[in-house]
Design a protein around this nucleic acid. Structure first.
Lengths: 128, 128
DNA sequence: CCAATAATTCGAGAATCATTGAAATATGGA
DNA sequence: TCCATATTTCAATGATTCTCGAATTATTGG
């Protein structure tokens, strides 16, 4: 990934309203949410939100699709994944101080069933 | 982690010079690098760099220690790890689109020896 | 076609941020 | 103590960025 792209994405989420939008859309999943719905959730003006959605879109972190009168925004998982990969590149200059925690993140995510209220099918994954 | 902290850290690395400093220090590892050495590496003025190092410090991403005439900056792995955890929180709103890639990151990191030009002693680590 | 809803674009003003030269502080050695 | 090295602080300037009101575009239903 190019530095330019990474910076674009980082600055996109380095702002309170946009970080909230981002997190909201991460939670919302692939189905996404309409712009108006997002605005209501975060109590931010429609036109302000529009500008912020554009920043996130231009960074490639979210994607818009029209559905009737609404425009639905949804997270782009690949973009986020690429950014995380970029940030952790060369993290092992010989040592594992950073890598070890990464494994923890992966393990915590989707395996700890703390938030598994929505019964994920969970194709048997080997533990630990 | 508080949103404020996350934003502080994200904005800290959402800028070209600082992102380069950050990546350089990630590579450098716990021993860190002197401010002057960083400046030479990135060909940026000492005073400009100083301001940027302060931003990264205030964000908690790096830490300074004096050593003789030099001031050595080193990455703070914990801060970075916490940020990554924060960014991936709630990423599993039921689906694994984002989580699966995370595991890949962890696996790629420290296991793929693609960038192992600096012959890490490699205390026998199981492959793959 | 007209009105209502959903969202975006435009322009301006305020606020924040990055960079620079000049001056200041801290350390180590002669 | 005096000087050179290493780095930071300060103040100013220019560049970005954020937000907001007003106007605009797109879509649906009557």
């Amino acid at each position: 990934m190019e530095m330019d792209t990474a910076i674009k994405r980082l600055s996109a989420i380095a702002q309170d309203a946009r970080l909230e939008v981002f997190r909201l859309l991460v939670k919302a999943g692939p189905d996404g949410m309409a712009a108006g719905e997002i605005a209501r959730n975060l109590s931010v003006a429609a036109n302000t939100l529009s500008a912020q959605l554009l920043v996130l879109s231009n960074a490639g972190l979210i994607r818009a699709r029209r559905e009737g009168r609404s425009i639905i925004y949804a997270i782009q998982y690949d973009a986020m994944r690429d950014l995380l990969v970029f940030l952790t590149e060369d993290c092992c200059g010989g040592r594992a101080e950073m890598c070890a925690p990464l494994a923890t993140i992966a393990a915590r995510c989707c395996s700890t069933s703390e938030g598994a209220a929505h019964e994920a099918p969970a194709r048997s994954r080997r533990r630990r």
